[in-house]
Design a binder for these strands. Structure first.
Lengths: 117, 117
DNA sequence: ACCCGACATTGACGAGTGTCAACATAGACA
DNA sequence: TGTCTATGTTGACACTCGTCAATGTCGGGT
């Protein structure tokens, strides 16, 4: 199931946009990128994302990262949002579900904010 | 007046955080950075920010960028949010108010998302 | 078959957000 | 002073969001 979502998001691995300082964002790009920024625009989600990104191997199961001060359903809800935004992918292995970052999308966001060029 | 706000935001020019992939974000940092991501998490705001950032000289008056499909008060409202998030600074020169990007803050966000190191 | 632990979904609620019309303010210029 | 233009503020409204309790689902073990 989560594999299907991953497939859907795959085409977006193409580098999104030139740096913000070099050209004005198109309407469609602004909608797409704003959705990603929005996903990181909540402290709990940003911490969850940070925990996954900094975890050894670049992936973590929910049990490793769910200590963020909110209830388990809320954690699950936020992880779903991050997945839907294309920032995380999930995979079930036995009892646990593992989340990992979607590196190409992150690189796109970084490039968008790059000021050096 | 806007100069006062600029002064308040000045201390945040210190590079915020290590890259997300290298260490887990602290609670306070996640609150602070999430507020910035949140400010860019609306398509209209992201386009306004893009228009300012890509404008020659790195600054633009409202009249240059207000063609984003919403009313003038809404544009003003969004610019205020971007200012409060520390992403833009404003300065009145005669009839027009000029907005420019706060480069150090942007650099901090870019560094946070940097995957190369 | 049963239970238990890991994670997701549903439904509900208060708080926050984006938007506009109406109005206010501040400079420039006659 | 008065008027026009540029921009900000206020108040209201529909809608979205973050959160939790309750419940559901899926796998592993006994």
């Amino acid at each position: 199931m989560s594999n299907l979502e991953l497939t859907v998001l795959e085409p977006e691995t193409v580098p999104c946009c030139p740096p913000l300082t070099s050209a004005e964002l198109s309407v469609e790009d602004s909608v797409r990128m704003a959705a990603m920024f929005k996903a990181l625009g909540d402290p709990v989600r940003l911490r969850l994302f940070s925990k996954v990104a900094s975890h050894p191997g670049g992936e973590a199961c929910v049990c490793d990262i769910q200590d963020v001060g909110v209830s388990q359903p809320t954690v699950s809800h936020h992880l779903k949002k991050l997945r839907e935004a294309g920032l995380l992918t999930s995979e079930r292995r036995g009892t646990w579900v593992y989340y990992k970052v979607a590196p190409s999308v992150l690189a796109g966001m970084s490039a968008l904010l790059d000021l050096t060029r």
